[in-house]
Simulated assay, not measured.
Amino acid sequence: MSDHEPAWEFVQAPPRSAPGASSMVGYRAHALPDALHRGLPSSRLTFIVALDDGVEAAATEPALASVHPAPIILGGLHTTASYVHQRPAQAGVQLAMHPLAARAVFGIRAAELSVTEFDGTSFLGRWGTRLHERLTDAQDLRQAFRLVADELVRRYDPDVRDRLRPEVAHAWHLLERSRGTLPVASVARTVGLTPRHLGTLFHRELGRSPKAVAGLMRFEHATKRIANQIRTHGHADLAGVAADTGFSDQAHLSREFARYAGISPLGWVAEEFRNLEDGGHRAASGWAHE
């Protein structure tokens, strides 16, 4: 591991800090030049509240030229890389939100969230604007965590959550427990549906098929394993990661990585090496600072 000046400060909130959030991470950029960042797909929704004027994010690299900073980023289950303009002194709070909590937290299904337009103010309205304003006055990241958690607790509607089809929740749990390796036909049989019916319910709720969700989970698990090995050992055993995460071999992992991320695993590690050393990519999301 190198002794470089950290480019980022990452602070992880305690588990279960906010309803619907799988993780909450505060980030601040320090020794960071203007750069392009590749945001990886994830099985979680991306919810970012900026502590500055906003995040510049787009679904493609060319589209970045025409976007403006958004104080709130909210994105659905995208299956290809997105792109973020990283700037000096960039700061914010990023939450990886469970897609099945979208109804209860945001008042809409995850399927209704865009995977190409990420400015969340159009969905969240005055609530989102107020949340951003409150966070810009926060004294530190831990106070920002408390503000976000308080607002999400106030917004959370358990009655809306209870309208979720139990078969969808059970199927998600089975896929997640297997890290995306359980066959969809087996999942459907376990929850008492045909694969076709389960696919219809997943598309309606999540905007993705069970197979697509399983693929995201498997890719995400592999990415975390690679990131953890880089932090611990300074290098990654890609053949071992492939074997441990359900890919047939390293070549299969590389093909799937290129499909989801638009780059090889080694290329991604080269791009993200300093972020990985500084503690990035610990949370269940692949955006902005990670």
Score class of each variant (00 low, 15 high):
Val93Thr: 05
Gln94Phe: 11
Gln94Cys: 11
Leu95Asp: 04
Met97Glu: 02
Met97Leu: 12
His98Gly: 03
His98Leu: 11
His98Lys: 09
Pro99Asp: 06
Pro99Thr: 09
Leu100Cys: 06
Leu100Glu: 15
Ala101Asn: 05
Ala101Ile: 01
Ala102Cys: 14
Ala102His: 01
Arg103Leu: 13
Ala104Ser: 11
Gly107Val: 05
Ile108Ser: 08
Ala110His: 04
Ala110Pro: 06
Glu112Thr: 10
Leu113Cys: 01
Leu113Lys: 08
Ser114Glu: 07
Ser114Leu: 06
Val115Arg: 12
Thr116Asp: 13
Glu117Val: 09
Gly120Phe: 00
Gly120Leu: 00
Thr121Val: 12
Thr121His: 12
Ser122Asp: 13
Ser122Trp: 15
Phe123Arg: 15
Phe123Leu: 14
Phe123Ser: 11
Leu124Gly: 06
Arg126Ser: 12
Trp127Phe: 13
Gly128Asn: 06
Thr129Trp: 03
Arg130Leu: 05
Arg130Asn: 09
Glu133Asp: 12
Glu133Trp: 00
Arg134Glu: 13
Arg134Gly: 00
Leu135Cys: 08
Leu135Trp: 01
Thr136Tyr: 01
Asp137Trp: 08
Asp137Thr: 12
Ala138Glu: 09
Gln139Ser: 10
Leu141Trp: 11
Leu141His: 08
Ala144Leu: 05
Ala144His: 01
Phe145Ile: 03
Arg146Met: 05
Leu147Lys: 06
Val148Cys: 01
Ala149Thr: 07
Ala149Lys: 04
Asp150Phe: 01
Asp150His: 06
Glu151Ile: 02
Val153Ser: 01
Arg154Glu: 14
Arg154Cys: 03
Val160Cys: 04
Val160Met: 10
Asp162Ala: 15
Asp162Phe: 09
Leu164Met: 15
Leu164Asn: 10
Leu164Ala: 05
Arg165Ser: 15
Arg165Glu: 14
Arg165Gln: 13
Glu167Asn: 11
Val168Ile: 10
Val168Glu: 01
